[in-house]
Structure formats: structure tokens, C-alpha cells
């Protein structure tokens, strides 16, 4: 598994930057965005920015399975909420634990659930996996609603510390920075996958699974790697949520909006590469934020649904695909 992950593209076939310069570029971009936020100095900028970056992470995580292998996970909320509720549990048990560690725990929990669901259903046709993930969202919600320790149906309060641990300033700035860091990790991973034999294996599954299987690609193993990674990253995206919202209940933690956004953004941006979910998250996330402020929050979620249906019908390759075709 590890050797598959790390192997570079054969003979430098893949164009563009190498992995290390790409990661450096991502870090520079993240630092610049954070610096710009500091310059604006308005806490709204951090709140809004957090949401968009969270969707970059969520959309990219979904795309690792959906876009690269073609298996559709509708249970985004299950994985996202597992991450969020892991943090709630840790907050109650070991409140002193630093947030990055909570994120790791949330990611591991969600990754394990992804592995389990995949193990049970990925031997079958892809639609069964999709249906199982839809049902998974309902069942995880049922479990959490019935679990009094994390507040059950009433929900749980999480106290957001006043100050940021490293940088000073509001804690929200720290949350934003952590989410930016997560985005760097997830994007670097997604791009590394694209350029590794793992990525070629995923693409083979997406294009023709039977042929891939026949030519010796270990399809089940690759699919399980994808589900675990994808689920784990979704959990990581959800882990800081309790500190962001400070009050978490099942109906907000399992809001269908997360699932629709996480699926709509890659589909709108383009599912072929790491860039698509980023473009989708920035455009759609920004548009949503704009509509939410200017019109209403009910309309903004409707717009995402309509955009997604419009794009899958009229522009199946997404925005990135539109530009590639014109060139």
C-alpha cells in the first residue's frame, strides 16, 4: 500500500510541478490567503473563508473516491458528522487535547467506517455502494440521536476558547488556519494520487472495472484504499466543526447541505483532477455566501442543487473541462 502511494509518475509523464514544489506553492498560497484575512481584519472574513476552505477539503475528499474511481458516496454527512462528533466526545473526555490531534482521531474514525462500508458493499455493482452510503447517513444519525453522552437529539455545546493558541487573536483565526493546513494536506494527497500508479489504478477502475480486474489491477484493494482515504478526509473536515458552530445537534450536523455541496462542487468544477473541486468550492461556496447575505439562506441551497443538476446535464466535464476543451 505504502509503496503504491509514494511511487512517482512513470518517467515524468505527468506535466507541471513536481510534488515538493507543488506542496510549497500550496503552503505559500495558504499563507497568502491567511495574511489577506489578517489584513482585512474582519472576523466575518474568517468565518466565511472557513466555510469555503472546509468545502475545498470536503469536495476534494469526495472526489478521491467519486471522481477518480467513479464510485458515488452519498453518505458525506455520515463521515463528516463522525468527525464532528469525535471532537465532541474528545472535548468531553480530554478537553486539553490540541485540535490537530482531534482532527486525526476524527479522520481515523471516519476512515474506519469508510473501510467497513466499502468492505461490505464494494464487491457488488457501484450503485449498491451508493445506496448503502445513503442509508449509512440515516443510520449514523439514528445512532447519534440515541446517544445521550453526546447530547442525543438535544445537541451538545462546545465552548470555543477565546484566544488562538499560536498566533494570538481570535480563536476563529486559528480554526481558519487549521482548515487551510488541512486543505494543503488533502490537495497534496489528491494530486500525488493522480500522478502515482494508485491514480492510474483508480482511473482504470473508473473507465472499465471488468477490464481492469482482468488485467491484474487489484480493484477491491484499490477501492478500499479510496473509500478509506476519502472517508477519513471527510471526517477530518468535520472535526473542527463543533468549535466553529459551538452548538452541534444531529439535524444540523447531518444537514443534507454538506452532502449536496461536497458532491456538487467537484461535479461543477470538474471531477478529473484536484483543481476541479477547488474551483467548484470557491465559485459555489462564494456564490452561496453572497446569496445568503443578499437574498436568503433557503434560496442559496436551492441554487446549488439546480446548478449541480444543470452541470451534470449540460457540462459533464465541469468548469475545468470547459476550459480544457476551448484550448
Amino acid at each position: 500500500m505504502a509503496s503504491l502511494d509514494a511511487r512517482p509518475a512513470v518517467g515524468g509523464v505527468a506535466p507541471g510541478l513536481g510534488s515538493v514544489p507543488f506542496i510549497l506553492a500550496l503552503i505559500v498560497a495558504a499563507a497568502a490567503i491567511f495574511g489577506a484575512g489578517k489584513l482585512i481584519g474582519n472576523s466575518y472574513a474568517f468565518f466565511a473563508g472557513y466555510v469555503v476552505v472546509q468545502y475545498i477539503v470536503l469536495g476534494t475528499a469526495w472526489n478521491i473516491l467519486g471522481g477518480y474511481t467513479g464510485y458515488v458516496n452519498f453518505g458525506v454527512t455520515a463521515f463528516f458528522a463522525i468527525g464532528a462528533y469525535s471532537t465532541v466526545v474528545l472535548y468531553k473526555l480530554v478537553p486539553a487535547l490540541p485540535l490537530p490531534l482531534m482532527i486525526v482521531v476524527g479522520g481515523v474514525m471516519a476512515g474506519l467506517v469508510g473501510l467497513g462500508t466499502g468492505y461490505l458493499t464494494l464487491r457488488l455493482r457501484g450503485v449498491y455502494f451508493s445506496i448503502a452510503t445513503l442509508a449509512l447517513a440515516v443510520v449514523v444519525q439514528t445512532l447519534i440521536t440515541n446517544w445521550d453522552f453526546v447530547g442525543g437529539a438535544r445537541g451538545a455545546y462546545v465552548l470555543r476558547p477565546r484566544n488562538s493558541p499560536i498566533l494570538g487573536g481570535e480563536y476563529m483565526q486559528y480554526l481558519f488556519m487549521v482548515m487551510l493546513g488541512l486543505a494543503v494536506v488533502v490537495l497534496a494527497t489528491a494530486r500525488a494520487i493522480e500522478r502515482s500508479t494508485l491514480g492510474y489504478g483508480f482511473a482504470a477502475i473508473r473507465d472499465d472495472e471488468a477490464a481492469a480486474e482482468a488485467s491484474g489491477v487489484p480493484t477491491l484493494k484499490l477501492k478500499l484504499i479510496a473509500t478509506t482515504l476519502s472517508g477519513g478526509f471527510m471526517g477530518m473536515a468535520g472535526a473542527p466543526l463543533p468549535y466553529y458552530v459551538t452548538y452541534l445537534d444531529p439535524s444540523s450536523g447531518f444537514s443534507l447541505n454538506y452532502a449536496v455541496n461536497a458532491i456538487a462542487m467537484p461535479l461543477i468544477g470538474g471531477t478529473g483532477s484536484w483543481l476541479g473541486p477547488v474551483v467548484g468550492a470557491i465559485l459555489v461556496g462564494g456564490l452561496q455566501e453572497y446569496i445568503r447575505v443578499t437574498i436568503s439562506s433557503a434560496i442559496n441551497v436551492l441554487v446549488v442543487g439546480v446548478l449541480m443538476v444543470g452541470f451534470v446535464i449540460a457540462a459533464p466535464q465541469g468548469i475545468v473541462g470547459l476550459f480544457q476543451r476551448k484550448r
Partner: peptide
């Protein structure tokens, strides 16, 4: 598989909202 399923998921969401 990918886009057809997402289409129905989108319809589900649009109808609910």
C-alpha cells in the same frame, strides 16, 4: 453511474428544499 446518480440526488435535494 456517476452523473446519472448525482442527477437524481440533485432532484432529491431540489424537491426537498
Amino acid at each position: 453511474s456517476l452523473r446519472g446518480l448525482s442527477f437524481f440526488f440533485g432532484l432529491l435535494f431540489i424537491s426537498e428544499v
